[in-house]
Amino acid sequence: MVVLTDVGKRFGKSQIFAGVDLKVDASKPTVIMGKNGCGKTTLLKVAAGILQHSSGKVARLVGAKTAYVPDRFPKIPFKAGEYLTHMGEIQGLPRDFINRQIDSHFESFGIPNDIKDRKIAKCSKGTIQKINIIQAFLTKQDLVVLDEPFSGLDEESIAALIGLLTKMSEYGTAILLSCHDKELARQITDRVLLLDGEGLQNAIFN
């Protein structure tokens, strides 16, 4: 779906990462781990096509549908249901389909129905994170990039998200995510990579 070859990224004089080789496809999810500040978020944005790389080569499937789950959900003046409807309509999805998808995701993540009419700014951190995730899964995507998606989720929601990622991967969606928790990473996939100053390495767990 997306292949990065010897990719580097710098902001001004600051080199964020260099020499990264990465292939993300639908065969299994890919998890990126690494210390704070090592450039995971920047790498995910380059893979999603949100940021331009500074060196190397990025090849992606032309016309691929990509969605992104940021680590910090933006401040927006919408109610939850209204926001998700807007995101679905922007993707060209019919209103009935969007409503069914929202209902289904709300059920899987255990979100009460009345949250749809609540302003996102007034929702709990965990609920905001779930809305953040749902906007990316309103329809089948070719590539979904998730930055720290487990942050703020309770155990049931983590299980629901792992289930969703596994299901979408089986349906042919390429999944790329960053995560700090080794156990969670291992539950999702055996393709776990570590980002450090020398690029991406296979993570070896004790």
Binding site: K45, I50, K65, A67, Y68, P70, P74, M87, Q91
Partner: peptide, 14 residues
């Protein structure tokens, strides 16, 4: 429009 929301919207717009 928040900078992060711009990125989300842009990807959905394609």
């Amino acid at each position: 429009e928040d900078a992060t929301q711009q990125q989300i919207t842009l990807l959905h717009t394609k």
